[in-house]
Every structure is written in structure tokens, then in C-alpha cells.
């Protein structure tokens, strides 16, 4: 019997134990089972790079601005919103914001000692924002993306405020200060929406964001 390997132009026989490489894997399909992966590797890498960039940008703003002050708070939140907007415009796939949130929370929780209690509120904010984006026309609608990010920001800030209550509940008067901090942060986040849209125009012009 003539095997595939002996035919001219046929692919070489697979090495026992080695993973079988198939072209669909390049477009996010798991091999062997014909099951399409929802996320392609390239998209997952983009989410990871943006998550890293948000952490580094926050650090950069805090270091350059001389610690935590109203200006650095505004800039930090502005940068976060701009980056989130750029990511959503680059990866127009339902679940991108939720995945981005999940990765940020996971790294904060496991590697940076971030509050375990922030996890539910952040995930709820991500889910609600995804719902709003879908309701307003999905990831193809630019205004839906902007509304989703605005909603995510306010829900996330509300969640942070709740967690800050847990932290300072023995002296609730301290909540006035955390409330001011959260409000200033939200101002920065809102300012990030028009800045992000303008930045996206530049990225489109440069051919980095195509749609």
C-alpha cells in the first residue's frame, strides 16, 4: 500500500508524540478537533500588551508627577481610558473589554497583592459594559464602544469606592477623601474619551488602526 509520505509533494509523516500542525491553527483553530478558538493568538497577545502598557503608564504618570496628586490622578485615568478605547477599536470582538479586565484583575490579585474583593466589582463592571456595547449596536458601532468604556469607568469607580469603604470602615470619615479621589479619577476617565477618539484619528491616519 502506498502511503502519503511516498507520494511526491505529500506532507511528511508526523513524528510520534509531536503536535500536529494545521493551517487553521494560525487563525485560532485548535488542532485535531476542528474546533475554532474564539480568540486568535495574535488578539490575545494584543490584549496582554495593552494590559502591560496600562500598568506601566500608571507607574510612569505617578513617577513623573511626583506621586499621587489631583493632576496625576486625572492623567492616570485619562491614559487608561485612551488605552482601553484604542484596544477596543483595534480588536472589535465581543468580550475584549471583559478579557482585558479579567487579565488586569488576575495580575493585580496574584502578583501585585491587589484586593481580592475588587474582583467581583471589576468583573461586574466589565460584564455591564459589554452588555451596553451589545445593546447599542455591538463592537462595529463606535459610539457603543465609547458608551461602554464610559459605563465601565463609572461602574469600576463605584466598585473601587465600595472596596475603599471596606478598607477604611473603622473611620468612615476617611471616605470623604477616597470619594474625592474617585471623583477626580472619573473626571480624568471622562476626559480620556474625547482624547482617545482624537488619538484614534491619528492612529487611523498612520495606518495602525484600520477600521
Amino acid at each position: 500500500m502506498k502511503t502519503n509520505a511516498s507520494r511526491p509533494g505529500a506532507p511528511p509523516p508526523p513524528v510520534p508524540g509531536a503536535p500536529v500542525l494545521s493551517p487553521p491553527a494560525l487563525s485560532g483553530t485548535a488542532p485535531g478537533r476542528g474546533r475554532a478558538r474564539y480568540w486568535a493568538v495574535r488578539e490575545l497577545v494584543t490584549v496582554g500588551v495593552f494590559a502591560a502598557l496600562t500598568k506601566v503608564s500608571s507607574l510612569l504618570v505617578a513617577l513623573m508627577g511626583g506621586g499621587m496628586n489631583p493632576l496625576t490622578l486625572v492623567l492616570k485615568n485619562l491614559v487608561f481610558t485612551v488605552l482601553a478605547l484604542v484596544l477596543l477599536f483595534k480588536l472589535r470582538k465581543p468580550g475584549t473589554l471583559l478579557l482585558f479586565t479579567l487579565v488586569n484583575v488576575l495580575v493585580s490579585m496574584l502578583l501585585m497583592g491587589g484586593g481580592f474583593f475588587l474582583l467581583p466589582s471589576m468583573l461586574a463592571a466589565g460584564l455591564a459594559a459589554e452588555g451596553i456595547i451589545l445593546l447599542l449596536g455591538g463592537y462595529r458601532n463606535e459610539m457603543a464602544l465609547v458608551a461602554g468604556i464610559a459605563c465601565y469607568d463609572i461602574l469600576f469607580k463605584a466598585g473601587s469606592f465600595g472596596v475603599s469603604w471596606l478598607f477604611v470602615r473603622e473611620q468612615p470619615e476617611l471616605l470623604w477623601f477616597t470619594g474625592v479621589v474617585v471623583a477626580i479619577g472619573y473626571v480624568g476617565a471622562l476626559a480620556g474619551l474625547p482624547v482617545g477618539l482624537r488619538f484614534l484619528r491619528e492612529l487611523r491616519h498612520a495606518g495602525i488602526v484600520h477600521e
Binding site: 478558538r37 474564539y38 480568540w39 493568538v41 490575545l44 497577545v45 490584549v47 496582554g48 500588551v49 494590559a51 502591560a52 500598568k55 478579557l99 482585558f100 479579567l102 487579565v103 488576575l106 495580575v107
Partner: peptide
């Protein structure tokens, strides 16, 4: 889908 972005980050 969680491991890859986390590792990249």
C-alpha cells in the same frame, strides 16, 4: 485565552 494575555503582560 486567559493564560496568554496574562503571560504576555
Amino acid at each position: 485565552c486567559v493564560y496568554i494575555p496574562t503571560a504576555v503582560m
